[in-house]
Amino acid sequence: MEFVSPEGLRLDGRRPMEMRQLRAKIGAVDKAHGSAYFEMGNTKVIAAVYGPREVQNRSQQLNDQALVRCEYTMANFSTGDRRRKPKGDRRSTEISLVIRQTMEACIMTHLMPRSQIDIFVQVLQADGGTRSACINAATLALADAGIPMHDLVTSCSAGYLNSTPLLDLNYVEDSAGGPDVTVGILPKSTKVTLLQMDSKLPMDIFENVMQLATEGCKAVANYIREVLLEKTKERQKFHGV
């Protein structure tokens, strides 16, 4: 199947190095201490953060840092066929672990010992790149909750089909069986914190694809910064000078 036409257009009309449309809204969940809604093309996710608050399970309390918990679920209606098990299957467990460890890298946990931070991410519509959208949404939600962080974490995916590196794969391109590289970076230092890859790729092509995904992450970072600055300005108007 052809994923890149001879003119260089992909199935949805994008160029190989073009990302999908990004949209973000902060404060989507009223009850949560911080929340955000993030869209990457047709992938829509919502993230809610609670904390820092008292540890619910005293035996898991850490005396020198905050306990970070994360739960990734996909809504039953998020994919084409109705999903019978939204959470608890192995893929969700792994992605929960991945998101938790990625966010732990940027949260300053030692400033909040003996407390707990919960991150809940739910995928409302899945069209490829759900992992990246979840991390971006979680970053916004954590910033909204005012939890101290070293840096933002942004994520984007890239692939390699028809001998072309493609940025931000959608579901059809993802399930084509080609390689799928998901990268999460800390934008200020461009250090890579999350890197996942499956399928086979020669090493030099992998470097190009990873580079492309990193550029995508930087673009997402710029967008997230803008959204955050706008929201903060809005809030300052009510509280401030």
């Binding site: 998101i99 460890q101 890298a105 461009t190 999350l194 890197l195 996942q196 890859m197 499956d198």
Partner: peptide, 15 residues
């Protein structure tokens, strides 16, 4: 060939 890579968070490192 690189078959799979897994770096699930943790400290950031340069490319």
């Amino acid at each position: 060939d690189v078959c799979a890579i897994q770096k699930a968070g943790g400290d950031g490192i340069l490319q």
